[in-house]
């Protein structure tokens, strides 16, 4: 009975970042709770669903687009981040280039993305401290300058992975929750269409 009464909210989330930084590994760790060393390269993008429960019992359903990292797939990225309410921009703490690339993604999101998008700036692979090239302070200060939230994770050990998604879920705008109450709870799959006015032809359902 609790299941019926709960509010369920669906949000589109996109993972961006350079190739090989661990975008897919983070998503798989979050969705399946495991680290798979045999992951294949992501071509185009892959898609996953996962739900988290907030302390107030609200269900947050994430539709996760995990995008390909190679530069030439860049032109496809707007298709995935358009209308997304959350974005996770990932770099590899052992790779300086990936950090620079992550900053470019942030710039692009600020210019082209949804103005209300919640952005997480994530340094992955903290399980390899001996190879670290980017200090936490560097990521932290970039994030705070740009109004993002910062976290370091390890998809391998699961460190901070569920915290990352939980933190995003808590930051998702409450105006959308109000909207959901008015439209009724029994509407799974229908996204609250707030804050996504700039779409050409329906980037969201309903």
């Amino acid at each position: 009975m609790a299941g019926q009464m709960r509010k369920a909210l669906t949000y589109k989330l996109v993972l961006l970042g350079d190739a090989g930084v661990g975008k897919t590994a983070i998503a798989v760790q979050f969705v399946k709770g495991q680290f798979n060393p045999f992951l294949e390269s992501t071509i185009g993008a892959s898609f996953m669903n996962q739900t988290v429960t907030l302390p107030d019992e609200t269900l947050i359903k994430f539709q996760i687009w995990d995008t390909a990292g190679q530069e030439r797939f860049h032109s496809l990225a707007p298709m995935y981040y358009r209308g997304a309410q959350a974005a996770i921009v990932v770099y590899d703490i052992t790779n300086r280039n990936s950090f620079e690339k992550a900053k470019e993604w942030i710039k692009e999101l600020q210019q082209q993305g949804d103005p209300n998008v919640v952005v997480a700036f994530v340094g992955n692979k903290v399980d390899m401290p001996e190879a670290r090239k980017i200090q936490p302070s560097e990521g932290e200060s970039y994030a705070s300058e740009n109004g993002l939230f910062f976290i370091e994770t390890s998809a391998k050990t699961a460190e901070n992975v569920s915290e990352l998604f939980m933190k995003i879920a808590k930051q998702l705008p409450s105006i959308q929750r109000q909207k959901d109450i008015t439209s009724g709870p029994s509407n799974p799959g229908v996204k609250p269409g707030v804050g996504a006015p700039s779409k050409g032809k329906g980037g969201c359902c309903g």
Partner: peptide, 22 residues
């Protein structure tokens, strides 16, 4: 599919660029 916000490239890219090996 269009009403669900799905653009063809969302599935064509994975199908075509690895020749259906996925």
């Amino acid at each position: 599919l269009e009403a669900a916000g799905i653009e063809p490239l969302m599935y064509l890219t994975p199908w075509w660029l690895q020749l259906f090996t996925n």
